[in-house]
């Protein structure tokens, strides 16, 4: 059983460590990649069209699939979002909110890019 509760949103203020994930080039433009941080899987998105980076749990809460990094990103009324490849449930990249209103929300994490490297913010 995959533990959903391992994924808890981290806000910028609460970041204790920045995990050095991968070089910018590992993430396709307007695409995503999955970063392994010990037992966590975090989906990181290079939203180059908006010049923004996002990170969320890789786990789709609908059918507990480790897959969101392979999802397609886009926007809904300006809100950046990702669509799960399996059944196209969509989640806000900003807040993690489920935009279909039927699944639960997902955890989000801060991202920073320094010297061409991508970092994910963690609480511990």
């Amino acid at each position: 059983m995959i533990e959903l509760e391992k994924y808890r949103s981290v806000t910028l203020e609460n970041v204790k460590t920045w995990f050095k994930a991968a070089p910018v080039s590992a993430f396709q433009e307007n695409g995503g990649g999955c970063v392994k941080i010990e037992s966590l899987q975090i989906a990181v998105f290079n939203f180059s069209r908006r010049n923004e980076w996002y990170a969320v749990q890789n786990l789709c809460p609908h059918k507990m699939q480790m897959i969101l990094s392979r999802g397609m990103i886009g926007s809904e009324s300006g809100e950046p979002k990702v669509a799960c490849p399996f059944h196209k449930k969509t989640f806000s990249l900003k807040t993690g909110k489920n935009l279909n209103g039927d699944e639960c929300d997902i955890a989000t994490y801060p991202v920073k890019v320094e010297n061409d490297f991508v970092y994910v913010g963690l609480e511990d």
Binding site: R49, M72, G74, A83
Partner: peptide
């Protein structure tokens, strides 16, 4: 307009 989505991209 906007950034696209899982409907128009494919």
């Amino acid at each position: 307009e906007g950034d696209g989505c899982e409907v128009c991209k494919p």
